[in-house]
Design a protein around this nucleic acid. Structure first.
Lengths: 221, 221
DNA sequence: AATAAAGTTTAGGTAAATCTAAATAAATAA
DNA sequence: TTATTTATTTAGATTTACCTAAACTTTATT
């Protein structure tokens, strides 16, 4: 496998993420948004990644990972999620703190390190946010059936994952008492702004915005 | 504390090392050698680090760390050595494999991470090469009394550290059976090239070059 | 002390990853 | 279908961390 720079790895990871979220071809704009950079920068990098045969890309036609690109993406995701497990399981970090740290640790590229880390952790299958961890061959369990909260139909739900890992969101959820496995009751859905009123066990009800509800993945209970 | 780039951190670390080795003022050339870069690059970086008040530097006069620079250096060294402990103690890496990995891990800058890692490891005082680990305040135990093998006078010696951490050297030592705590008998010192003939317990004797013997730190036994 | 050798700095350049502003293509609306 | 809006690309700069080659200091040698 080729040697990628940190910037290249971050692009690959983001392209993978956007493809997963259902984008047929990932647009320059969407990728710029995801990476908090400018479209012009994305175009530059697209040329480079195409050169390295990690993506297919034609001017104005958007971006897709090649099989090689996908393999690279899964490897980066494996590293990221294993480090998250380490931070939570061994160093007692909480759920919402680990994403940015893992974002840095994931760029230490060593097969041996990551395989030993996995072993040390007992070869975990899912990370602290509920996402599956690809194995050394890049095989990853199907993410469990889940719906974003804004689309869920049932009244009684369980939180199975959070798709946006920004500290801001995770801290907000933490403050509200929402974490993996938390059970939620939907009190009301307000059409005018798609906000949702929720209740957890015996705590007072509270309201979350559509923006937030899109990022909370739930399953009926 | 200021935010340093990886390159800046590596310079700081190398300046610290050369000062420790006794250089009054660290020369451009020595630093270039240590970092495997060119003197002109060192001059460039020296200006930047002076700007940040991490070193004192005057044209042609060499480099020294300021108190701030030293604090930064000790912090980087702390991270490096704790990761080495982690790799050896928890992931069963061997002595000679960990240096380059720690070289990458050390650049993940997070007080919290490193303090938790230290705690997780039982707040170790020395790393797998026998070097002391600075504490969170940057206080570091005195390195134990030790002499480079090429300067040692006794015949019977114990290996307490290895100062050059290049994989090449560490692998060589490993192959010869030389590790921390190994006891050596000096059979002969050859003046013409300063090579040394050694023996370990009941193994056959072998010869090492001056270059190698300079990097093996020993104490009389 | 004069000169040669060694060490250091400057000047000018390169590659990676960004950016802004302007140009161009594609999608949408009138 | 033409015009307008939106998306994308190009052109040209910028910053960081390097580099080489030439100029300049310092140190060592004769």
């Amino acid at each position: 496998m080729m040697n990628l720079t940190i910037a290249e790895e971050n692009y690959i990871k983001s392209i993978y993420k956007l493809e997963e979220e259902g984008q047929e071809a990932v647009s320059t704009n969407a990728l710029a948004g995801e990476l908090e950079t400018k479209p012009a920068s994305v175009t530059d990098m697209a040329k480079k990644l195409k050169e390295k045969k990690l993506i297919s890309y034609e001017k104005y036609q958007g971006i897709n990972l090649t099989p090689d690109g996908k393999k690279a993406a899964l490897n980066i995701i494996r590293r990221h999620r294993l480090w998250e497990c380490f931070l939570v399981d061994k160093l007692s970090f909480s759920w919402e703190e680990v994403h940015e740290l893992a974002e840095e640790l994931e760029h230490v590229r060593s097969e041996k390190l990551i395989n030993r880390l996995s072993e040390f952790l007992g070869n975990p299958q899912i990370d602290p946010h509920g996402d599956p961890i690809p194995d050394a061959q890049g095989k990853m369990g199907k993410p469990r059936p889940q719906t974003p909260l804004d689309k869920a139909r049932s009244k009684r739900l369980e939180v199975v994952a959070v798709s946006d890992k920004s500290t801001a969101l995770l801290e907000f959820l933490n403050a509200k008492g929402i974490r993996l496995g938390t059970q939620l009751d939907v009190i009301e859905r307000y059409e005018f702004d798609n906000s949702i009123e929720l209740k957890i066990r015996n705590q007072p009800a509270f309201t979350i915005s559509e923006q937030v509800s899109k990022n909370i993945m739930v399953k009926p209970i």
